[in-house]
Design a protein around this nucleic acid. Structure first.
Lengths: 263, 263
DNA sequence: ACCTGAACACCGTTCAAGT
DNA sequence: ACCTGAACACCGTTCAAGT
């Protein structure tokens, strides 16, 4: 019950330490609290421990399981203590999101490869949302303004600008890309929460089963009223999400490419 | 406090009565409950009244305000009574969503105008999400399977098929369109809940203000680390959502058009 | 067939009080 | 400076009991 502050660093953060300090206290990997002088006294629960604990709970128990009371219990402190550190659950979720955004690395702009680079950015965003199935739902009402989020935006914009896309289209296109990917992954992550539960048999089986249920349901509709739904029931139920995602970024990037100013 | 079951039918439902009966008890505009014989006894709170009451609460008080207890109070019944009719809050939300989807009308397929028709479908979906700012957030984990949702899918697919788009691409494209529009409107509706509150001064002002705040925030970033964010601060903060939406459906429809089989 | 009050097991947040 | 227990005002849902 006290082993939950570790394990947060598997994905891509390695090799890039300290890249996100000094911009805000929303930083990661340091135990610095909001004052500059090193905290004496006996440790006190750190910002980092709280954020990583929250991510742990989210990843393994799902979004619904993250209550301030439960998180406090996991961390071994009183529920009210959390409020001294993060102000509110909303504030905590802001920190959590920025932390997780920091997992994704964006490459240096290469003007000749901008289309592939942009697709990779989209794929990385989707992969992150699948690693943390709660991410998109938490992101909803929020405007991401943490240091990692800002860096992310900066780097993607750099790619678009280097490609020769006019600034106006670059900004609109970037915003569009993010929302389109989010919209896409919502459907993938919305139904099954907490995929890391105990030992749920790698639910290829479960997914398959519910897909067949859906297909049967659609196929059983009255064909006179639903000629397309019935004849396309297979396509609908068995639609490959990987393929669909590639279709998304393909058409999107192709659409943006029309705005590249020849030079 | 008893005047809340009316008013639900302004938008487009007029002139098309009874179009959604007989497919399921999720129907609208009838007081039929799940048995065929007409309900004698004194009225009993109807399915319709509950669903419309919920939509009323959602529209005027926001998503957070919709609790079973509050809805029951508005309807003048006990909270537990709701469960006899709708089973659970989740079940109620399914009915609510399908009801609201029924507001949108899809035109008959006209192969020569399919691109405009598809764009109109997307615009109608966005408009509906803006009328009911809670819609996208409620839709998240759900697979819409009510009668109105099925009819909606059927009609959009008809347009795509009539255009000569291969069935596989048509299905993937349709799913993509829905999720892209949802992803887009999430950002528009996520922040401001319950826009119909008392007399909030038609928040063009509010919106303007927060946009300027965001612009100032971005512009104040260190230019050495954030050359693009700082130079594009205006574009970011003042980005026109209507224009961005048109950019979305433009590139999307153009992308789909590449798959039309010449005939 | 329908509706109820009361209860169960939760929430986020505040606040006086402790060290 | 940090942490706490207890309280406030809520949740969704169940269930025995009423008519």
């Amino acid at each position: 019950m006290a082993e939950s502050t570790a394990r947060r660093l598997e994905p891509d953060m390695s090799g890039t330490p300290g890249q996100n300090a000094e911009l805000s206290e929303t930083s990661w990997g340091r135990s610095s609290s909001r004052s500059a002088k090193p905290s004496r006294r006996r440790e006190s629960i750190s910002h980092t421990a709280i954020v990583n604990g929250a991510i742990d709970v989210l990843d393994r128990e799902g979004l619904d399981a993250l209550s301030m009371r439960h998180l406090a219990e996991v961390l071994g402190i009183g529920a009210a203590s959390l409020y001294w550190h993060v102000g509110s659950k909303d504030g905590l979720l802001d920190l959590v999101l920025d932390q997780v955004v920091g997992e994704t690395k964006i490459p240096e702009p290469d003007p000749d490869r901008w289309q592939d680079q942009l697709k990779d950015v989209a794929r990385a965003q989707r992969a992150m949302s699948l690693r943390h199935p709660w991410f998109v739902r938490v992101t909803l009402g929020r405007i991401p303004i943490g240091p990692n989020s800002l860096r992310h935006s900066e780097h993607v914009l750099a790619i678009l600008r280097a490609a020769g896309i006019p600034s106006h289209v670059a900004v609109q296109g970037y915003l569009l890309l993010v929302s389109a990917v989010n919209g896409f992954t919502i459907d993938e992550t919305g139904v099954e929460d907490s995929p890391n539960v105990i030992d749920l048999p790698r639910d290829g089986e479960t997914r398959q089963h519910s897909a067949e249920m859906a297909r049967d349901y659609l196929a059983a509709l009255p064909p006179s009223q639903f000629p397309n739904m019935t004849s396309l029931a297979d396509e609908f139920a068995l639609a490959d999400t990987d393929e669909r995602f590639e279709l998304l970024i393909d058409t999107f990037v192709a659409g943006l490419a029309r705005h590249v100013t020849k030079s």
